[in-house]
Design a binder for these strands. Structure first.
Lengths: 147, 147
DNA sequence: ATAAAAGTGGGTAAAAGTGGGTGATTGAGG
DNA sequence: CCTCAATCACCCACTTTTACCCACTTTTAT
């Protein structure tokens, strides 16, 4: 199982191409078959799951009853935003326009490793996100990790 | 098994022809034999099942008790609206008039991958559908994916 | 210090998406 | 039964986007 971590600031060129940081690349399982699934994050960022990690979610989705209205809505939201991309010969993926628009990414991008996936942020948005949390890191950590 | 995903905005010409998005085309199994079954969706959209996926539903349908009035209604709605089409030399299918009328599709169409099938929406109707869901995506996601 | 790997940028051939013409097929009306 | 119009299948043509290759600079490893 993959476990991504770390943070990098990389360029994104005018074709939407971003390199996958070498350190994170090492965490990709061969089962991913050089393929990522891109989708929107819960926050204002774009996320990329290696194929093998994504498949775990696919399995869950397939068990949902499509005759239920709520389930259909959920599936449409998830799936409509999802797209499969392959890593090119230069270890890059390319993000299509809708993802750049959604996240406001342009020119520079912050890449964050988040365990089973990678996140792409507009650098200013990432800054803003961090500073919007008035609670101290220690406090949140204490709450989250309470047994 | 096929797994469609993604969302595209494509043109539909005055002959009713729509390209199958290349990304979704890659998810079609060869068993589908370049054939789709078109029918109406549960919502105001047109749906297309690759032949092999449709056959799974056919099996389910044939187990339904036809002496039950509700079952008969359901089967008539599904089957009366179903039609088989083949992908042409340019990777397109053509939607006959009744589907365009039902869904209000004209000129532009939103194509959504939904696991075992593809959906075709009038862009405005799709917008409306999304905005009619007052519940936030996170909320629904939390409910649906609750273990 | 040098070689290898990582990150960045650009050119080009192929694929994808879109539109139209034509001859065969069908089906309604005379 | 025949005719004409509408529909459809097939072919070709064009534009835009994507995939693939090469090249260069910077960083890392030995």
């Amino acid at each position: 199982m993959s476990f991504f971590k770390g943070q990098e600031v990389f360029s994104i060129d005018n074709k939407g191409r971003v390199s996958i940081p070498a350190k994170m690349r090492k965490a990709i399982s061969p089962e991913a078959n050089d393929t990522f699934i891109i989708t929107r994050g819960a926050d204002k960022c774009v996320v990329a799951y290696p194929l093998n990690e994504w498949k775990k979610y696919e399995e869950q989705y397939s068990t949902l009853n499509q005759y239920d209205e709520k389930n259909r809505y959920f599936l449409r939201m998830i799936l409509a935003w999802s797209e499969e991309v392959e890593i090119d010969g230069n270890q890059r993926i390319s993000l299509s326009k809708k993802y750049l628009d959604f996240s406001g990414i342009d020119g520079k991008v912050v890449i964050v490793g988040m365990m089973d996936h990678i996140e792409f942020w507009n650098p200013e948005e990432f800054e803003k996100y961090l500073s919007n949390h008035d609670e101290s890191y220690e406090n949140v950590a204490a709450q989250v990790m309470r047994k």
